[in-house]
Amino acid sequence: MFELIGVPPQALFGQLLLGLINGAFYALLSLGLAVIFGMLNVINFAHGAQYMMGAFGAWMMLTYLGIPYWGALLLVPIVIGALGILLERLFLARLYHLDHLYGLLLTFGLALIFEGLFRRQYGSSGLPYTNPIPGGTNLGFMFLPWYRGWVIIVSIVVCLATWFMIEKTKLGSYLRAATENPTLVRAFGINVPRMMTLTYGFGVGLAALAGVLAAPIYSVNPIMGSNLIIVVFAVVVIGGMGSIMGSILTGFGLGIIEGLTKVFYPEASNTVIFVIMAIVLMIRPAGLFGTPR
């Protein structure tokens, strides 16, 4: 076996794959946060809880209703997204005329409530979810489990489709314009409050989709979201709030950087993203892809 800069290739590519997997989740979650923040000016602290509810949704559909993974992949984002729409109508919509901070506090409180409810019902030890695509293939330099490859592909496709919808379509032009100047867009006859509701539902749906994708990889656990969301917020800060392509690229990029750090300097692997965040905040406070607002 040959070695690369003193590291066996199996270890290097193995960690790269893990990095890409993490990056796939970072990208999906930070994309949802960016879309919601752009349109609603709300930092959705419930995003991690909604991701967790996506994973639980898949588990509950399988356990109670016998709906397999593939059905859950489609149904869960719709159900949790609809729940998001309800939350926006009932609570968030009443806070838009106040400071950002109130939306953040509200969603943070909701996250605690959701996590508490699931912990009370299911405990915090985690529930298993069977891998729907077991097995894998040996690529020569590494072993690729089918399911992990699937997660990366789904994440890339969904991220690019979202980017295309926002940057290249008529609907997306409404979204971009309403992000810039909602008052004027409304004065042109577009129902901006309804767009905000649907955008929140869409962002929450993305979080739920990430949760379904995560269920077979990580154990389904009430606190799986709060562990992940801290890192995702760092990703969003680095990429720049509100930038669509920025959050996708930063999500995958930081996942890979984290993976590489595990190979070359494992001690720093848990902190490298936060170190990068601190540096970016000092040099470009609006984030790598963000514009000051």
Partner: peptide, 17 residues
């Protein structure tokens, strides 16, 4: 004037329904 920076001229023109 309210021209949108994130839209090109044609998108600006076609924005109001």
């Amino acid at each position: 004037r309210g021209i949108f920076a994130s839209l090109n001229v044609t998108e600006n023109l076609l924005l109001p329904p």
